[in-house]
Design a protein around this nucleic acid. Structure first.
Length: 845
RNA sequence: GCCCUCGUGGUGAAAUUGGUAGACACAAAGGACUUAAAAUCCUUGCCCUUUUGGGAGUGCCAGUUCGAGUCUGGCCGAGGGCACCA
């Protein structure tokens, strides 16, 4: 028997698809569109298993939708600006552009080997001038709309990468890439006014019906809307500042006021800047803000100003004002009123500095003598010890009533506050999109005029030196605008800007004058199904949602607000980890085992290798498997089969060598089955048996369901199930009638997973390799007989095949007459029966 | 600390509205074929019983229901997100 030669077959069909431009998509308003997009890769060098999984999932969906008759857009591109290119340039003296382009070429070849149904004519790369020149126009448009501004601000400074990080890029006080402890630094930075859309971004989440709840909740928490009010506190003493404004969600606890805490950056700090003790305290705070230990401990420290604040609801009460490390300048007004009894953080602080703790809310089951001791009470209850607020129900009336009182007395106003801060987009890097502005002698911002756009990155520059590379290229930096000397902005844009609109560019990749063509995006957008890792739940997905609103703002033609109609977050690919006895990571190729239990270093049976937990594949843990090696040895179809088979796509999957081999063997078995089918179709047999037809129609129905629900692992099980059925059935005397038709349908429904294999089989049968998605023949699967489950007292006792749609009496008659079942209820008194039509009967005896 | 998700055989997992738990696969054990091995195929898979058959069983404890992996409450465990957000 001829073996299935995946190398020849896969290459043949990949060539065929390329030559015939099989996946080219064109705008066709008479057809319903389907935009399927996977998160585009960063060209780091080679593709990894995560890409294989991500793009296989997308490819199955694209091919399925295309067979259903949709006009499918399935593009691919490169998120090609970013730090690794610059690091490679530093370490290996490679030009970032050349390094990046080389990687793209390698990875493109690798992706093609997977047999993806991608329209490569739409390929884009964010580091190309053709891409970033449009981004510069967007930047200037947003500037004109007032959505971009510059301000001096404290930023997260990464001392290793020497760049600014967005809040989202700081993880546990460390830079997300370098791992360096982040410092606070004051810099003049460009910002996108994302907070302007806080409420819209929050409300928009409700419209996203096809997003995972998990992601929506994460974004909701990130935006962090809270309802409360601003309260003005009078300040007593000699300071020129006479009031301090606070934001609070609990104005109802104002009578429990015991101190006022402000940030060390609060305007009031101006009047302490010469106080040496305050200087020392401020220094202490800047340290605790970022180090991991302090965050873990959460120690609260304060500096007493010896200035007093007045309780607006009780003019007689005066409390001390402290500078405190836990108050953030960029939330609320950089000041909080402290009510220790009903806020754990305030209580910690009060206990440390011996400040009074006055209970003003009691739980419903306590009386008025209830007192808070070491644990703040934040639950529901009733207001006490609060003069005219006493008796209010917490929280349903107390907050609103107190705000009304404050507004009436002109002491405060209702306010909604958001946690979401504006997006700082300046990066002190070379390999990014240049910000298209310059400054004149006075430092005023001058937009680069149209005829001097785009601002191109200078080439052949020295990246060895520390600091901002563009700042050192004098010939590039100094320019003339309208005859006047200016110098360029030397920061580049955060690469998350690049990926905030690339999905628009895919719709009109050749639009020369502008980033998109309005006709084309209005046809293709929104992305119907976006697929990628959950690690982008906040950053990329929130920025993209913002960017669409920013383009939409003051632009009647631009209709899009939500870029991604459907979102699917796939899990990671994991593998066991190995270490030698000295705790050094070992790669899977470096270890060997004979029994699958005891591992040792290859060729050194006395050197033990320790098997660690299975973790997501990463270079640092050396537990990666190279997709190219696997594709070359087992074939793309077998890899696609395996990567989908073991776990549901949203969960992590365990890479298993054995599983991979099994998938490969299965491909061979499928080929044998194909030959059997081919022979059988030629044979002249007669039999009225139509089981194959029935089976395949039931299978189409199952696969339809599983495809729509993303249960791709179950589809693979369905495939195995079909194989098992067919191998049995083909050994029997079966009807030739409709055999070819059934087999064609079978090949069609597995073709999204195994496109090379099925194309080959269809061609072998002289059939069109591009089949339509088969429809279910309802008449065929309309079975006359049904398996009824016979339960006694809720326990399964028998299964009875009988006519469909019968009623309870008929079924009971059958049970009594049936050899097998009659003994179950013989001589028993039947109390009650529960009958579910065509399903089961539960007899209580 | 707050929020979210998930706990099913030796393993990865199926189970569409509450209605046959463990589909499908991996691993294991036994067997067939073979001079032998590899490959392939078959059988088994918790407890009791020689078999027929019966029993327990979806993290634990309760509840709702004729019937719960699925719904409700509490507990335990694992993973993820946020981190002084006033």
């Amino acid at each position: 028997m001829e073996r299935y030669n995946f190398k020849v077959v896969e290459e043949k069909w990949q060539d065929y698809w390329t030559k015939n431009k099989s996946f080219k998509s064109t705008l066709n308003k008479s057809k319903k569109k389907f935009y399927c997009l996977e998160m585009f890769p960063y060209p780091s060098g080679k593709i990894h298993m995560g890409h294989v999984r991500n793009y296989t999932i997308g490819d199955v969906l694209s091919r399925y939708k295309s067979m259903l008759g949709f006009n499918v857009l399935h593009p691919m591109g490169w998120d090609s600006f970013g730090m690794p290119a610059e690091n490679a340039a530093k370490e290996n003296k490679l030009d970032p552009k050349i390094w990046t382009e080389k990687n793209i070429s390698v990875m493109k070849t690798q992706l093609k080997k997977l047999g993806l149904s991608i329209d490569w004519e739409r390929e884009i790369s964010t580091c190309s001038e053709e891409y970033y020149k449009h981004q510069q126009l967007f930047f200037l448009e947003l500037y004109d709309k007032g959505l971009v501004y510059k301000k001096e601000n404290y930023v997260n400074w990464d001392p290793i990468d020497e760049t600014v990080l967005a809040n989202e890029q700081v993880i546990d006080g460390k830079g997300w890439r370098s791992g360096a402890v982040v410092e606070r630094k004051k810099l003049n930075q460009w910002f996108f006014n994302i907070s302007k859309f806080s409420d819209e971004l929050l409300k928009g989440l409700d419209e996203l019906k096809f997003w995972p709840n998990k992601v929506k909740i994460m974004q909701k928490n990130w935006i962090g809307k809270s309802f409360g009010c601003e309260v003005n506190f009078k300040v007593e003493g000699d300071l020129p500042i006479k009031t301090i404004k606070c934001f609070t969600t609990r104005p109802d606890t104002l009578f429990g006021f015991s101190f006022l805490a402000v940030s060390v950056d609060h305007p009031i700090s101006e009047h302490f800047k010469e106080n040496p003790e305050f200087i020392r305290f401020k220094k202490e705070c800047s340290k605790t803000g970022t180090t991991e230990e302090s965050i873990a401990q959460g120690e609260k420290i304060g500096f007493n100003t010896n200035v007093m604040a007045v309780n607006p609801l009780n003019e007689k009460q005066k409390v001390p004002i402290y500078f405190a490390n836990f108050v953030l300048m960029d939330y609320g007004f950089g000041a909080v009123f402290g009510c220790p009894a009903h806020d754990q953080r305030d209580l910690d602080f009060a206990l440390k500095y011996n400040l009074p703790v006055k209970t003003v809310v009691k739980p419903l089951n306590e009386d008025d003598t209830y007192q808070v001791k070491k644990e703040a009470y934040t639950g529901i209850g009733e207001i006490i010890n609060s003069d005219f607020l006493n008796g209010l129900k917490v929280p349903e009336e107390s907050v609103i009533k107190t705000i009304e009182i404050l507004e009436e007395k002109k002491l405060g106003n209702k306010k909604i506050n958001f946690r979401l801060k504006d997006w700082g987009v300046s990066r002190q890097r070379y390999w990014g999109c240049p910000i298209p502005v310059a400054y004149n002698e006075n430092g005023d911002v001058i937009k680069i005029p149209n005829d001097q756009l785009p601002v191109r990155l200078p080439e052949n520059i020295n990246l060895k030196e520390k600091g901002n590379p563009l700042d050192k290229v004098k010939s590039w930096k100094h320019i003339k605008i309208n005859g006047k000397d200016c110098f360029r902005e030397t920061d580049t844009l955060d690469t998350f800007v690049d990926s905030s609109w690339y999905f628009l560019r895919f719709c009109s990749p050749n639009s020369k004058d502008y980033g998109y063509n309005i006709d084309e995006i209005n046809y293709w957008m929104p992305v119907d199904q976006y697929i990628g890792g959950v690690e982008h739940a906040i950053l990329h997905l929130l920025y993209s949602r913002f960017f669409m609103r920013a383009l939409n703002y003051k632009n009647d033609q631009f209709k899009i607000t939500e870029p991604f109609e459907g979102l699917f977050t796939q899990g990671m690919v994991c593998h066991e980890t190995y270490k030698d006895e000295n705790n050094n990571w070992l790669s899977p190729e470096e270890v060997e085992s004979e029994d699958g239990k005891n591992f040792y270093i290859k060729n050194y049976p006395d050197k033990k290798a320790i098997v660690g937990s299975s973790e997501s594949m990463s270079k640092s843990k050396k537990n990666t498997i190279d997709p190219e090696y696997i594709i070359n040895n087992f074939g793309a179809d077998a890899v696609r089969l395996f990567i989908l088979s073991d776990s549901p796509p949203e969960k992590d999957v365990q890479w298993s060598e054995q599983g991979m081999v099994a998938s490969y063997k299965f491909m061979q078995k499928l080929w044998v089955l194909h030959k059997k089918f081919k022979d059988k179709i030629k044979e002249d047999t007669t039999s009225e048996d139509n089981e194959i037809e029935i089976f395949i129609n039931q299978m189409i129905e199952k696969i339809n369901y599983n495809l729509e629900k993303f249960h791709y692992n179950v589809i693979i099980a369905n495939l195995y199930e079909s194989y098992n059925f067919f191998t049995q059935k083909l050994n029997q005397n079966i009807s030739k009638k409709n055999l070819l038709d059934s087999y064609t349908k079978f090949l069609s429904i597995i073709s999204p997973v195994l496109p090379h294999f099925t194309s080959e089989c269809l061609a072998d049968l002289k059939l069109n390799p591009f089949q339509k998605w088969p429809e279910v023949d309802k008449n065929l699967i309309k079975n006359d007989t049904v398996e009824y489950v016979i339960q006694i007292n809720g326990k399964k006792r028998a299964i009875l095949k009988y006519m469909k749609d019968i009623n309870q009496e008929e079924l009971m008659k059958e049970i009594i007459n049936n050899q097998e079942t009659k003994k179950i209820i013989e001589n028993k008194k039947i109390i009650k029966c529960f009958f579910v039509k065509n399903r089961l009967i539960n007899i209580l005896i």
